[in-house]
Design a protein around this nucleic acid. Structure first.
Lengths: 151, 151
DNA sequence: TATTGTTATACTCTATAACTATA
DNA sequence: TATAGTTATAGAGTATAACAATA
């Protein structure tokens, strides 16, 4: 008994994760607004731009933890903006590969600078070592969470 | 140059925070569904039930990081369910104190058992020490983020 | 003048179901 | 039968603006 239950909520890891995520997403969206992007569309663009032959929408859904139907809408948005295009897969006619256009790669690079700077600013509370530690802890949490969901 | 940019997104702390938060919120909502609650309404109920004289809606908004207008709706919902009630503040006629009813305290306790068990399961990937470390890192991140927003 | 609570509105995100075309 | 993609829809969460009552 040390009175610690007075902070039952603000000490809750779930609550803290939600708050921290909200702060980062909000700031990231603000820094992406000038590029006509938001966190989710930027993530899709990033994965497309950083791959050589393109990414299937199924892969995007898996990596991003989104439903395939959401990926369709995000890709539609990027296609309209001229930042990616859908190409037929040479090996599977069901699959469509999402590939960044030249404009998409430029946009990804420019937006990346801004969003990375924003994140750096938000993580400034932590030392470099702590940031790595946080990344590792979150990675294991996410990996475990996904496994648990599949059970 | 070690090829580490191939994981540019999945190594991104912002992305990991968003994923981890999503997993925890989803699981928490599932464990609260049987109690007629969701994460946000449960948080309001918790703060009301754990306070002696009640909490003002302004305080709730501050602690939860929500807009006051959202707090109104969440409190409305809990009032309808008979879990909290609004009482006039004895010192400020603008302020309305949110107080848990007896039913609300019972619901908070029961729901708390379920949601805590769910979180424990999700954090099982980490040792007790790592969980404390994660909490501390997130606490500092959230505190810093809030300060930055105020600038 | 500033603060507390409220109403209203629009947009984003999340969750599902049903469907097609291919494998 | 199962998988990749698509369409549609509803509900939850977020973001703002404007307002009344009170300090």
């Amino acid at each position: 008994m040390d009175g610690s239950d007075a902070a039952a909520l603000t000490d809750d890891v779930g609550f803290l994760l939600s708050r921290a995520s909200g702060l980062v997403v909000r700031a990231s969206n603000a820094s992406l607004a000038g590029h006509g992007l938001r966190v989710r569309s930027y993530s899709v663009l990033l994965l497309a731009a950083d791959s050589v032959e393109g990414v299937s929408q199924r892969e995007l859904a898996d990596v991003l933890g989104l439903d395939p139907s959401q990926v369709v809408l995000l890709v539609d948005e990027l296609v309209t903006a001229g930042l990616v295009e859908r190409r037929p897969s040479p090996t599977d006619r069901r699959t469509r590969l999402v590939v960044a256009t030249d404009a998409g790669r430029v946009a990804r690079a420019r937006a990346g600078v801004d969003v990375d700077a924003t994140l750096t600013r938000q993580l400034a509370e932590l030392t470099a070592g702590e940031q790595l530690l946080l990344r590792e802890l979150l990675t294991r949490l996410v990996a475990g969470g996904r496994a648990a969901v599949r059970v």
